[in-house]
Design a protein around this nucleic acid. Sequence first.
DNA 1: CAGTATCCAGTCAGATACTG
DNA 2: CAGTATCTGACTGGATACTG
Lengths: 112, 112
Amino acid sequence: MRHTYHDIECCAAKVALDQISGKWKPIILFHLSSGPMRFTELWREIPRVSKKVMLEQLRQLEAATLVERTVHNGFPPEVTYHLSSKGRELAPILQQLEQWALTHIEGVVQIS
Amino acid sequence: MRHTYHDIECCAAKVALDQISGKWKPIILFHLSSGPMRFTELWREIPRVSKKVMLEQLRQLEAATLVERTVHNGFPPEVTYHLSSKGRELAPILQQLEQWALTHIEGVVQIS
DNA sequence: CAGTATCCAGTCAGATACTG
DNA sequence: CAGTATCTGACTGGATACTG
């Protein structure tokens, strides 16, 4: 998403929210918070998403420098993803958000 | 957005993020944090959005019980929007997110 | 003033198949 | 294993005009 000066003037939090929200990004961040994971490992944890979409989400997290990608040479290929320091600094805030959610969303969210 | 059991199991923060992210929601929350505002007043603060979209965002915030809507009888009609207690409890978290953003997004965000 | 009603274009997630 | 390529339908945001 493109940001305008007006956004930043008003609310840097919007920029932050755009970087961390998205269909699967919070879940990816959640899983990576326990440590580095390989692509397929991550993919298996979130089985409902296609590889293509998974990649897109990871690329966007990389572009936002929240996640870093490491390629280990060899065959078969091995690529791991891990949180950057910026991503790790986000963790406590996400935990507060989680806590806020748990005390407020009860009875509001649909379960499918 | 519909949530599944898996989302909640993994990450209640995702549910929270879905409720507060969206093209204009953070900006609306930001403006309402200073106090109640009338529809047109709010609309004038965010001039790039159409009334239809503005309404949609407000309705979603209402549905998430973050914002409340008050109709004052009379003519011309007067409707004000204000944060619920749930919305007010979110404010400090958004401020932290704002702070996190300010220390990290520099040089990353495009200005259009 | 505070909305509805239409219509449109662009983006996004997803399914599926293929590759170095 | 870790991707790419292609195609698709659904959803979102937006422009514009109209209304109680």
